[in-house]
């Protein structure tokens, strides 16, 4: 019996998701709103200028590059906006605007567009932008100030990690200060509570894998606890956990390996954690998250080749000796 319904095969994909790049980026932007409000609260209205400069430059750079190279304009996927936000949140409030502009241009054009646009970048664009400024104009990203300054004359202050590294006293900053963000630092990195709130939102929306973040943080905590200044198991792991750029890196940057299998992502998180703790404890910089994640970005391809991902539906067969 011939079926009268004309059957034509459907073309792939047969399984679809509503998760587009644009949707993901919108969720990340939403998640970063509390951090943005916190940056204004703690460091003043100049934070708005910094964020606006970074975001505007990133979007404009991407538009100009794609226009000039006659590619599809993709600024409406908001990935450049997210990059701009992360660049801004990694800068102290007294950073010069021209520094932020250079970091933004470099991150979008060199790190992202040169390698084919979103998904093709070899490293986190925001961190590459910050790293370039740290290397070329280190004084620009060292202008940390205390929080709650109401006047133009901000009081400069070393960060907690810097004080910790040099063996100086930082008892004026309590753990609670570190948790809420009342400490010197980059405008978006200081408030752990606000960063975690946004991260919980992303976890709820299934944008990020909290296991990866947890593994990264746990690795850093373990190493900084074990290798303390007064001997083994004497490290001030809470200070390491609550200060510096660790939390923003854990919540919004280490989770940037969506294309890799879970076990690879966890492995990379461990590597990044080891490097972060290592740089903080034994390197010349007080903060290690930026370079640790960049190094991990470069190792991602190698790890991907070494660790075979689990094939769905197949049980792992162990070779009999």
């Amino acid at each position: 019996m011939i079926n009268n319904i004309e059957k034509t095969p459907n073309i792939s994909p047969h399984l679809k998701t509503n998760k587009t790049s644009k949707n993901i980026m919108v969720d990340v932007i939403i998640a970063l709103i509390p951090v943005f409000i916190g940056s204004i609260y703690f460091f003043g209205t100049r934070s708005i200028l910094i964020v606006f400069s970074a975001v505007f430059t990133c979007v404009l750079s991407e538009y100009i590059w794609q226009k000039a190279s006659k590619k599809q304009i993709t600024i409406n996927d908001y990935s450049a906006v997210v990059t701009g936000l992360l660049i801004a949140f990694n800068m102290p409030v007294q950073t010069s605007i021209w520094t932020i502009v250079i970091a933004s241009i470099f991150s979008i054009i060199v790190t992202k567009q040169f390698f084919g646009g979103i998904g093709g970048n070899f490293a986190n664009p925001a961190l590459v932008g910050r790293a370039i400024i740290m290397l070329l104009w280190p004084a620009q990203v060292a202008k940390y100030v205390t929080t709650y300054h109401a006047s133009v004359d901000a009081v400069s202050s070393a960060t907690i990690l810097s004080l910790l590294k040099n063996g100086n006293d930082f008892s004026q900053f309590t753990k609670w200060d570190m948790f809420i963000g009342n400490i010197p630092g980059a405008i978006g990195e200081t408030s752990v509570i606000l960063l975690v709130i946004g991260f919980l939102y992303l976890s709820y929306r299934k944008i990020v894998n909290p296991v990866v973040t947890g593994v990264y943080l746990l690795t850093v905590v373990l190493i900084t606890f074990v290798f303390g200044p007064q001997g083994l198991f004497t490290g001030d792991y809470l200070t390491h956990l609550l200060s510096g750029g660790l939390m923003i890196a854990a919540c919004y940057m280490i989770t940037d390996y969506a294309s890799f299998a879970p076990r690879i992502r966890v492995t990379l998180a461990v590597i990044a954690g080891i490097l972060t703790a290592g740089i903080r404890l034994w390197g010349i910089y007080p903060e290690g998250a930026c370079f640790a994640i960049l190094i991990t970005n470069c190792l991602a391809g190698l790890v991907d080749r070494i660790i075979k991902p689990h094939i769905y539906g197949m049980k792992l067969k162990r070779d009999k000796v």
Binding site: D27, I33, Y41, G181, I197
Partner: peptide
């Protein structure tokens, strides 16, 4: 998907307000 996002945003807003309440309260 959109309902899910709206719920998330509302929860995020509420928790953020509570957090700022805690932060400001601490300062005071």
């Amino acid at each position: 998907m959109k309902d899910n996002r709206i719920k998330g945003i509302i929860a995020l807003a509420i928790v953020t307000i509570i957090s700022f309440g805690i932060i400001y309260g601490t300062k005071s």
